[in-house]
Design a protein around this nucleic acid. Structure first.
Lengths: 311, 311
DNA sequence: TCGGGGGTTGGGAGCGCTCCCACGGCGGAG
DNA sequence: CTCCGCCGTGGGAGCGCTCCCAACCCCCGA
């Protein structure tokens, strides 16, 4: 089943069918109708390989998940982004890859990378949109309003009359964490945090960080954690030393992952929407591929405070 | 950059380069080395579109995530399968799709579908391997040993001297749930469950199911939940009515998702490995595409009981 | 010495499509 | 009425590769 057959069926030429199938300017309505009828009755599907070979585009976009370290991504974050992205790709094929080097023959790429300094996106010779703000390079990106979310968390802790606030900040090379903590600092401007501990993005690391925070600031009464995973560890440690949450210490996380609703007490956190992130990034990439002018270099999606029992 | 250039650089013909790049029988060692050197120095990457067009395969596999209902999949399950699958695809490209109808121009497909009766895989005109046992069709599949896991859970409840065991069974058209419950029944053969409630795969639905189980079997002392998500709801409901877990009621889940470690008490559950599932399915598909004979129609991966505080 | 065969290699054809140019027919202007 | 220009259409070229067949070379046996 190829163009030629459709053309024969419609009583026109290959070229005309191609015109109808594509942008198709300058085809008379009658001809167009005939072609469309032939396409429908033959259930014709264009051969993507031939299209790519002859044309200048592949109608394929790479989704690169750069997961260098162990499971830095919240699984729900990743599936959300993936789900949003695939639905926003407007008919283009999505090839997923873990390694950007594997990527070739695509029109563009969506790169989900936690590490803010990842040089790999630059090596792709196609338009790239990042999911998550990069720390170093100047590529287009879509990100949650981590700074604003941090501000919300900070204001909330202040409203709860917390005065000795500690921060479990996550890694210093993860832009999202950096921004979240920056937001908190902004909200706390008059009274800076009593202690800031960097840590990895796991509950265990969060627990360890909570321990050292408590060691250096024994009277801490509020803890802002850069991610829910860290907060889970913090809660666990606090419980293990008998500190009451939220009476003695308020704990606020970030992400609103599923665990935030399940832990005890349920976690006050800042919600972001991974689906929207993926979807928006896909939209931005598609727009760029379509040649739309004046596209924003960065897009920031709102975050929202969700108050639960831990604060 | 095309074959011709590589050929010129290596001082051979297009055909010879092609031979080296592919299975390549009958190329002299010297020639092969020259070609490989040229390929390397030119950083040549074959054009996938041209390959697909000229050859009989596309080196592309579809990963179809058939997520009809709302979020039936545990996110961690999906990311695990995806991660495992992409790494097991042996260099083939993976295109992800939500709808099998979008899929064309692929050599084969991996279908992750919760619904056991999905007719869509059959419509794909390529080899298909399912992740998860289908209820109706006879396609090749890879699945966790849900039955065996159910048996482990049942034996565990018996060892805990539970005698009035209830089941929150999940939906009756989800093969994994059906199998898990069947395993439990097998372990409990001499004393069948005191009550079986079907429910959706969400904590809320689990909580509601726990309520009706408690209504019909007030003295229930053990609950087997077909998934951790259901178990979370059950725990929540039990806590809300003041039932002590595990003293009065033992609760066992299935999946060993992250929440199982976070809830209170931590959940005894059956562990499966989504990564292995995806990886094995990919391997099976690749083997079939490579024409390997005598491939198993079904592959079942082991599950493992993880005992925590809830039982 | 000559012919035959196997191991290597080269080149043509063609996959299905897009792009581009050329061609025919029609209407309006001169 | 003729000429020009435009709209709509057809067909050639060629994208980069694989597949197939033919050509070649060298070594062996007769």
């Amino acid at each position: 089943m190829n163009l030629e057959e459709v053309a024969r069926r419609a009583g026109v030429s290959r070229s005309t069918v191609s015109r109808v199938l594509n942008g198709s300017t300058g085809v008379s309505p009658a001809t167009r109708a005939a072609v469309e009828a032939a396409v429908a009755s033959l259930r014709y599907l264009p051969n993507q390989a031939a299209r790519s070979l002859a044309g200048t585009r592949t109608d394929t976009v790479a989704i690169v998940v750069s997961e260098e370290r162990d499971r830095v991504f919240d699984d729900a974050f990743l599936t959300g982004v993936l789900r949003g992205a695939t639905s926003g790709l407007a008919g283009r094929r999505a090839v997923v890859a873990v390694n950007p080097r594997e990527v070739s023959d695509v029109d563009g790429a969506l790169v989900v990378s936690m590490s803010g300094h990842d040089p790999l996106p630059r090596e792709l010779r196609v338009p790239v949109v990042l999911v998550g703000r990069p720390l170093s390079c100047g590529l287009a990106y879509v990100d949650s309003d981590n700074l604003g979310g941090g501000v919300l968390a900070g204001r909330h802790l202040i409203a709860r009359e917390r005065r000795r606030i500690g921060v479990l900040a996550g890694p210093s090379d993860v832009a999202a964490c950096v921004d979240r903590v920056a937001g908190l600092r902004r909200a706390l401007s008059s009274s800076p945090p009593a202690g800031v501990i960097t840590c990895a993005l796991t509950p265990d690391s969060g627990a360890a960080a909570m321990a050292s925070l408590l060691a250096s600031v024994p009277d801490v009464d509020g803890v802002f954690c850069a991610t829910d995973a860290i907060a889970i560890g913090a809660l666990r440690y606090l419980a293990s030393v008998g500190a009451r949450v939220p009476e003695e210490v308020s704990v606020v996380g970030f992400d609103d992952s599923l665990v935030a609703t399940v832990c005890t007490p349920a976690l006050t956190t800042v919600r972001q929407s991974p689906d929207d992130l993926g979807n928006t990034a896909a939209w931005r990439l598609v727009a760029e591929l379509a040649g739309e002018p004046d596209l924003p270099q960065s897009i920031v999606l709102p975050t929202e405070l969700v108050v639960r029992g831990s604060s």
